[in-house]
Design a protein around this nucleic acid. Structure first.
Lengths: 167, 167
DNA sequence: CACAATTCAATTGCGCACAACTAAATGGCC
DNA sequence: GGCCATTTAGTTGTGCGCAATTGAATTGTG
């Protein structure tokens, strides 16, 4: 079963760490994709992908705003947002319009259809929460945990690699 | 702060749910990418991407195994694994070889170089754990939580869409 | 006003995730 | 042996994530 990695008589601690890493890596990666998968199924009815839904959530909440701001909310750059927003425009959900006061900036705003889609989206969260099988309390707790993790990781990333982008 | 979305005098519950959804979506999505980002920085030294590292972790632990089994461990299909494994082969870390006893199957095994890379990878988990700022106990706890979540989501996905794959 | 530095969106290139499909090999059945 | 469903990798196409680059607009400075 273990042709190459015959454990030594006294396995070093680092061996165990590697195994632990395998476990946490898999868990987070799997959870992320499982979440994505459930959203994919549910959002198909709305004609949205998961990242597109994230963009729409921001627009429904914040109203019109430039690509730059949208990227800050979502922590995504133009390389991801530009093509995504074009697809949303093609779908008739948003309008991309260069700002009159600053020609570099592109304002994103909802079409009537895009705004109307919000009504249909209102049923999504309930179904997601139901799919998790968690209590609201537990979800909030998990969310706080994840935010805490993200904060620590972002800070650490800056230390590991000084040449970091994204304010 | 709230340019367009002036809350009504009595906001409906579903409105709050949508806001909650925005929060949990963002948190999980952000955590996943933050994690990915830290690994990317650290794994660059090994010449591996994060998914490639996941594959190597399995190979270091399990030894030689067919693409099918690899996919089951990682919950990934051939559409993802085939090109990934080709890149690992090009990098000289693994060898892809059709099984003699079943010509449909392709066995993946480590080269000497691939096996040797394990030694350098042993320092990765410690750096990751350090980057999270979490105690080992907390990480295990989070991992269990995530696994629980994944289990529930997978089960729910099957109910939402009967035509699901992935054993 | 002229010029350099900065900001912002878009583009290009690479890799991953996943659905849908193709092709080859296998195994069961008659 | 001949036929058909199943298994297994691979391929194609679409979309996301991110680094790096480009190009236009703006701002700062003299």
């Amino acid at each position: 079963m273990t042709p190459t990695s015959t454990p030594l008589s006294a396995p070093a601690p680092s061996e165990n760490w590697l195994r632990l890493d395998r476990q946490i890596c898999f868990s987070l990666h799997a959870a992320s994709r499982a979440f994505n998968g459930v959203y994919r199924v549910i959002l198909k009815e709305l004609g949205l992908t998961y990242p597109q839904y994230l963009v729409m959530l921001v627009l429904w909440e914040q109203g019109e705003l430039p690509v730059k701001k949208l990227g800050e909310h979502l922590r995504l750059d133009s390389g991801t947002l530009s093509p995504l927003l074009k697809r949303l425009e093609t779908a008739g959900l948003v309008i991309r319009e260069r700002s009159a006061r600053d020609e570099r900036s592109v304002e994103i705003r909802l079409t009537e259809e895009g705004a109307a889609l919000r009504e249909r989206a209102l049923q999504v969260p309930r179904r997601i929460v139901s799919a998790t099988g968690f209590e609201l309390e537990e979800i909030s707790e998990l969310r706080e945990r994840l935010d805490q993790l993200t904060g620590a990781l972002d800070a650490a990333a800056l230390e590991e690699e000084p040449g970091a982008r994204q304010g």
